[in-house]
Design a protein around this nucleic acid. Structure first.
Lengths: 245, 245
DNA sequence: ATCCTTAAGTGAGGTAGCGGACAGAGTGAA
DNA sequence: TTCACTCTGTCCGCTACCTCACTTAAGGAT
């Protein structure tokens, strides 16, 4: 029996970078694009690993995570179908100090490093899109850094929730407070405090690893500027989904 | 009378990126390179500014600074003669959300955006070096973010001091505690506390805007891992000064 | 049904950094 | 020499988050 393929997400054009490629570039790359599932919790690469593929998520969320020697960690950025994972494949460094983990289940298409380097060196649209995405990613990482330093956890949590639901097509997240803690660089108990505050305010609801955003506008009014700043920079730099200006 | 030019730093090859260019690339660019002083406190670009030049510092330090709406700010990275300032000129985004400020007096050569784009599109060594430096810069920014989140101020201060003296050729820094505070994202009083602790331990000495590192090995043994991690990544990715492997 | 594991809530006590206010102490200008 | 200004030191109460320890609750497996 042939394996049933998820027909929801096996169209490369669900990824916005791929969708923005001119038809002839896409034709050339299509045979090289390999569909891969992104199961929850999959570590796509660890710190310092030689990265062999550039991934273009079509759904789900991938977290870029930085781990310290003492075991503590922080999420530095979060990538969905608007971007790509594995920029060191074309930046030339081969590896990165951060690791990449699937934080919300999904799928992706991937290109072998050899292919993306070839394509990149042509200097076409793929090169331009890659660099623009990289710049957007820098903006996200930087803003996250400053947000960590200056904003209280409940606002950071709002930002994280909004960035996550933006990259899914639902208001339900499957994630424990423990995990959120390790992403935001705080303890689980601290997350419990912030989350229950948001619940009291009627912005979210949750139970045992399931969070539902019940009042998105409410979250948006509570979140710090960092959310909007990053979103605007992404809008400025990256191609928009079809139908949107 | 002809203006006296600082003969110390007007050699483009004092910048390590430029120094790593093949002779024929350098010849082509030489007439386009414009020498500019970097006086203390100069704001080279503000958040969102259209960036018209790519700067290659030959001396001094440039800080990449991120400002929040409430006026608080943080330094996200620090660039000396190992790198360049204004990567949005070749990344394609034209502007960045961070601003760039001369934190320690020096000088640079600069290339107009048009020229660097031209050179970049040739796909030669300049392209490769630019991308590698960008990746190193990402590493530095990311590590700074995690360091902010997890390490106490006195260790962060050690890191900042070491990164600064690494980019100068002296153990003396001209910088007030007030400024350090705005760079590390804390209050001046907090810096006073951390600095006086380091002074008690005999690692540094200071007075009225002048800091002297008196015990570098001592600082290195006190600093968090973040300093070494970034340094190693820079060593891995970037060309070394001549004479060093 | 019962047990077991995982997720979430709670509470006591500690600490780093904040906010604001104010006190010396160099330095340079008048 | 005096004044003004800038840089540094210090103190208070306060808050956010931490460490450590324990409890409650929801599913899942047997």
């Amino acid at each position: 029996m042939a394996k049933v393929v998820d027909t929801e997400h096996n169209d490369p054009r669900k990824n916005r970078i791929l969708a923005a490629l001119p038809a002839h570039d896409m034709e050339r790359l299509l045979p090289e694009l390999e569909f891969v599932p992104l199961p929850l919790g999959l570590t796509m690469s660890e710190s310092g690993d030689h990265v062999d593929y550039l991934h273009f998520p079509t759904s789900g969320i991938v977290s870029l995570i930085y781990e310290l020697e003492d075991g503590s960690s922080s999420e530095t950025a979060l990538v969905g179908n608007e971007g790509m994972v594995g920029i060191s494949t074309f930046m030339g460094g081969e590896s990165m100090p951060s690791s990449t983990v699937v934080q919300s289940v999904g799928s992706a298409f991937r290109l072998a490093r050899k292919i993306i380097k070839q394509e990149f060196s042509k200097g076409g649209q793929m090169q331009q899109l890659s660099l623009l995405f990289t710049q957007a990613l820098i903006a996200q990482t930087t803003q996250t850094a400053v947000c960590n330093a200056h904003h209280p956890l409940d606002q950071q949590l709002c930002r994280w929730l909004l960035m996550s639901v933006d990259r899914l097509h639902t208001n339900k997240l499957v994630v424990t407070q423990e995990l959120i803690g390790s992403l935001l660089g705080v303890r689980r108990e601290t997350v419990t405090g912030a989350a229950s505050k948001l619940r009291e305010e009627g912005l979210i609801d949750y139970a045992r690893g399931n969070i539902t955003v019940t009042d998105r506008p409410g979250l948006e009014s509570k979140v710090c500027e960092c959310y909007a700043t990053v979103k605007e920079e992404y809008d400025r730099l990256l191609p928009h989904p079809r139908g949107t200006p």
